[in-house]
Nucleic acid binder design. Structure first.
Lengths: 172, 172
DNA sequence: CAATAAAAGATAGGTTGCTATGCAATTGCC
DNA sequence: GGCAATTGCATAGCAACCTATCTTTTATTG
C-alpha cells in the first residue's frame, strides 16, 4: 500500500525506537540531487505564497535582487547574473513589464541592447519582498546552528561550481 | 557594466589575494533559498543531458525511482512519495504512458484508482538511469568529504521538514 | 437507504525552466 | 568599404511545476 511517506523524519533528531524492522531509507534520500530538488521546491512554494500578495512570483525574485543592487542592466547582463538561459530571462522580463515592475528602454550606444529599469512599483516592493525571503530562510534554518548554515552554503557553492563547467562526459 | 559573475569562486577553496577592494558577496549568495534554487537547476541540467539519450526526462526520474522500488502504485501513492501536486503527477504519468515507460490499469477493488505498472522499457532503463544519477551526485560532490556530504544531506532533510508543515503566517 | 462528504483522477490555465531557431545590430578582418 | 562572425534579443515549442475546478466513485452519516 506504500506508506504515506510524509517527509522522512528530520535526520539528526532523536527518534523513538523503530517498531518496524528498521526499514532502510529509500535510496533517494541519500542522493544530493534528489534532496536538493525536493528542498528547492519547498523553498519555492514557501516564498511564492509570501510574495504573491505583493504581486510577485518566484522567477521574478532573482531579477529584482539584481536590479535592486544595480538598476539599468541589460538583459544579457541579467542572464549572466541570474544564470538562466536567455529566452527564460526574456520571458520573465516580458511579464515583469506587463505587471509594471520594470520598463525597457533601448540603449542609445548599442541599439541591440534594451536596458531594464525598475519602475516605482518595482522599488516599492523591495522591503517586503526581502523580508519575506529572509523569513523563509529563517524558517527553513530552524534548529540549525550558524556554523551548520554556513557550512551548508559552502557545500552548495562547491557543488554549483562543480556542476557549472561540467558538460556530460563526451564520447571521446 | 556588471561583471560576468560566472559562479562565485567555490567557497572553502583558497583564492588568490583579491586585487579588488574585497567587494562583499551579493546578499543572494548567503541565502539558502537562492543557493538551493541555483544548485537544483544545475543538478537538473546535469541529469537531463545524461538521461536524455535514454529517452527520459528529469520529472520522470522520481516516479521511476518509486516504481522500481515498488511497482503497481496508484497515482495518489506516487503523489505522496514524490511530493508533487496531483495534477503534476497526472501530467508526468501521461507523458510516461505516451512514451511507453508505464501502463495504467484500473484497480478492480476501487474503480477510481488507476494502478501504474512499469513496462519492459520502464525496467530496462533502470540500470543506466541510476548510474547517471550516481555520476551526477559524484561529480557534484567532488572535493567534499563523506562527512561533509552526510551533514549536507542532514541539513537538507531538516530544512525540508521545516518547510513541509509551514504555511504562511496567517494574518491572525 | 438516501444525502452528503471525501477521495481519485482529469482538465484548464499560468509561471519557470529548457533547446532550437531567426533576425537585427555590432564587431572583426581582409 | 565590405563580408563574415559574433552578440543581443524575440519567438516557438516542450517539460515540470503550481492552483482551481470538475467528474466519478467510494465512504459516512443522518
Amino acid at each position: 500500500m506504500a506508506k504515506p511517506e510524509p517527509a522522512p523524519a528530520p535526520a539528526g533528531t532523536a527518534q523513538p525506537p523503530p517498531a518496524e524492522p528498521a526499514r532502510p531509507l529509500p535510496w533517494r534520500y541519500e542522493s544530493s540531487g534528489y534532496m536538493i530538488n525536493l528542498a528547492a521546491r519547498l523553498f519555492e512554494r514557501a516564498l511564492a505564497e509570501r510574495i504573491a500578495p505583493l504581486g510577485l512570483t518566484t522567477g521574478q525574485f532573482p531579477v529584482l535582487l539584481a536590479l535592486w543592487e544595480r538598476d539599468g542592466l541589460a538583459q544579457s547582463e541579467l542572464v549572466r547574473i541570474v544564470r538562466v538561459e536567455q529566452p527564460t530571462m526574456a520571458q520573465i522580463l516580458s511579464r515583469m513589464e506587463r505587471d509594471g515592475l520594470i520598463a525597457r528602454a533601448a540603449d542609445p550606444d548599442d541599439r541591440r541592447r534594451a536596458l531594464v529599469r525598475l519602475t516605482a512599483r518595482g522599488w516599492s516592493v523591495q522591503a517586503p519582498a526581502v523580508a519575506a525571503a529572509h523569513e523563509v530562510n529563517r524558517l527553513a534554518g530552524r534548529g540549525l546552528s550558524d556554523a551548520q548554515t554556513r557550512e551548508f552554503l559552502a557545500v552548495l557553492m562547491q557543488m554549483s561550481a562543480n556542476l557549472s563547467c561540467a558538460a556530460a562526459p563526451g564520447p571521446t
